[in-house]
Design a protein around this nucleic acid. Sequence first.
RNA 1: GCACCCUUAGCUCAGUUGGUUAGAGCGUUCGAUUCACAUUCGAAAGGUCUCAGGUUCAAAUCCUGAAGGGUGCACCA
Length: 734
Amino acid sequence: MQQPLPETFLKPYDPAENEPRILELWERSGYANPDVCVEKGVTKPDAPTYSIVLPPPNVTGTLHMGHAAMLAIEDILIRYHRMRGYKTLWLPGTDSAAIATQSKVEKNIQKAEKKSRYDLGREELLKRIDAFTEESKKTIIEQTKRMGSSLDWSRYAYTMDEKRYAAVMEAFVRMYEAGLIYRGDRIVNWDPKGQTTVSDDEVTHEETAGTLYTFRYAKDFPIPVATTRPETKVGDTGVAVHPDDARYKTYIGKTFNVEFAGAHLSLKVVADEAVDPAFGSGAVGITPSHSFTDWEIAERHDLPRVQVIDERARMTEAAGPLVAGKKTLEARALIVEWLKERGLLEGEKQVPMNISKAERTGGTIEPLPKLQWWIAVDRSAKFPDGRERTLKEWMRSVVEEKKTDIIPERFEKIYYHWIDNLRDWCISRQIWFGHRIPVWYRRDESGNVVETIVSVDGPSSAKASEGKWEQDPDTLDTWFSSGLWTFSTLGWPEETDDLKTYHPTSVLETGYDILFFWVARMILMSGFLLGDVPFRKVYLHGLVRDEKGRKMSKSIGNIIDPLTMIDKFGADAARLSLVIGAQIGNDVKLSENRVRGYKHFANKIWNISRFVLENTADADMDAPLTDEDKELLREAKRVVAEISRYIDDFRLDLAGDAVYHYIWDRFAAEILEESKPILKDGGEAAASRRSTLNAILLISLKLLHPFMPFVTESIWQELSRKECDLLMVAKWPN
RNA sequence: GCACCCUUAGCUCAGUUGGUUAGAGCGUUCGAUUCACAUUCGAAAGGUCUCAGGUUCAAAUCCUGAAGGGUGCACCA
């Protein structure tokens, strides 16, 4: 006697029809929230925890393949652990992405109203940005859901919401009080296009052809000097040579006054180990204000600093009348001309040269001296465990001592290398959208700062009456707030239950491209503020590239849109295609064909289920099993063990592959085929096989569920006998 | 310059501590089909495992070197 099959099974699996329905079921169930799971008895109250904080996508962004890969991987880990009975939390959020968002809104306003941010003023611009982000966040959230991500939206956080803002203020004040944050006049990476400073990590180097000019400052100047940037030479205050360089030894310590391209230069010859006597003329003209290495040399030898380039990348008055007010490149031409006319140019050579660019805006970086806020990475401070150490020491030690594992391991070396080269982190930005620096200044009539207050709430009312206070106009580097993300999302600085339960998080899963930007900063912040690591493991996935291995970019036009893939082939297929073939830390090459292949697979499990249900609906699950069937179940167990081990080892690629092959090649192609005659013959063998097929189907659905949640859940809904209403919270087989 | 990764079938990639005849998907060719599935099934063709040495009874796998591709970091003025 057969039960009538649900009609849905009579046609091929249609993702478009099933996915929205299933999403709604999941959302209504509330099972993505671990508290609900405990409440409904799905998870034991004292179960071990498993937590991941979602790397927050840009609030104004749209879902791209990188996000899709991230969501697929994390959702697999989350669903697997939830099914294994862990108290499982996956916490969603969005990021304000300060510079990117502000410039986007500015651009829109410029286009629509022909107004700049200065026309609008700070307050109005921020209002506009808030309105814009509020509107556009719906897009990214909706798109995130469509991937089937079982995130706990009841805990949604935004880097600029009230709680996160308060956490940032608190962190700043604590670090300031510990002496880890200081204000300093130092050379910074200035982005003339974005009109802001950027950190070392936000600078990229582009190789271009440059000219190395060898020249003398004046006819009677004894040492020739080489440079690729003649325009900066009007800011020189010294010439450095190697201490052992016989050619120049006699001049060390002497000062020469020269007239150079309209500027009066006073050049002191100093000996410094940093100079390579074999390069160029073996002597370096020192421009302290516009070169990082020169700044350091100048510091060692106490050379004065002259700023000859301003924030708009134009020459200052101090550069002298010949070039003042000119753009740097114009100034360069003028100075080369000046040198040629006077016969001071001794050589010109084409050399490859790296130009520094701001990653976000593409502006050419000008190193400039500026008064900025910094995080000291080499200064000792007291950590919550009572021990004194520097931030660098902490960052190094947590990975060395395996408090945090980086997977794949090879990134550990890259991480150490980064730490060794790390300089103090410039955290202040001259943009308006972001977490404003919690520092207030009181000035006297002539504008000099006479008092400074660093506090979360600003000057107290008593203080406020003492005079006019102004808050520092700058905002914080967006990665400052991102660094707090694992614990600010859990309620820090309050001692919340969530914080106690879910921190440190189990895994941070993200692209390797933000290892330094983000991963390292989280380790830093969590270390100093909580005395603990932010996560036990860092799992770095590769970048998604096109089928030829190129980066996806608008200009090449090779972008594969995850939403288009979902529409065409279903979210399940999109997920699997991003996981299988993606070896840890290696890039994934994606093509539509691959996604299509996995759509076929979704249909395969659909039809397997149909066959099994048609033939075994009346199965007696307690029927005595034949030896053959016992072996089939043992085999299924071995597959479960194999797949569990792969997932535990973060080999989701192999796990996915193993599920795929077990279900298709073993279950469908062999077991079902050989079952047909057995079922036909009837008798005890048939009864045994019916029960076995049923059991294997359940195991298969569970194994596949983390990878293809929609189709498996759709099938689960059609089962008449099941242990729980949703496959999402069914028990992982063992 | 320093470091890291990659190179296996036409394409995309598996191959974990060395161990039968090196695998899969897609593509190609041939065939099947009242069957749960034409989103199927079966079969075939297709490999000097980039190259050159070495270790070993045994190397795609370990070691050394080279070539090509990619990435990170540092940059010399």
